[in-house]
């Protein structure tokens, strides 16, 4: 029997799911809600986020927080479409979902290097 290469997709899916579950709510709170609701000085918060993005570890964290959930979501959509009996061949769908996640991750990486 031929070994499936699904573990690659499933690992990214699992990592994205874990990340979303553990730090997703915290990220929404600290980057989207708190600066507007609680912080005295939104401009200082903006500068702090800018400093985070300037640091290599900060870039890596943001890349992980964008790329892994992308793979998670598109993997689930890909298999969800199969479960919904979408009458489409697998390869174009795989290209669209995993290719899309790869492309958007690459764009994020490129953008992070520009900051």
């Amino acid at each position: 029997m031929r070994r499936s290469h699904e573990p690659v997709a499933w690992s990214l899916f699992g990592a994205g799911g874990m990340l979303l579950a553990f730090i997703g709510p915290g990220l929404v709170l600290t980057t989207a809600l708190l600066p507007w609701l609680a912080a005295d000085d939104p401009q200082a918060t903006h500068a702090a986020i800018g400093a985070l993005l300037a640091h290599p570890l900060g870039k890596l964290l943001v890349l992980a927080c964008v790329a892994l959930p992308l793979f998670h979501t598109l993997h689930r959509i890909y298999h969800g479409l199969h479960d919904l009996h979408l009458p489409a061949p697998r390869l174009p769908l795989q290209l669209l979902c995993y290719g899309g996640a790869t492309l958007l991750s690459a764009v994020t990486g490129w953008w992070l290097l520009q900051v």
Partner: peptide
């Protein structure tokens, strides 16, 4: 494991 590793093994499951 060779059976589990295959597409017809665990990887056909979409966790319905």
């Amino acid at each position: 494991m060779q059976w589990l590793n295959a597409g017809e093994g665990v990887w056909s499951c979409t966790f319905v």
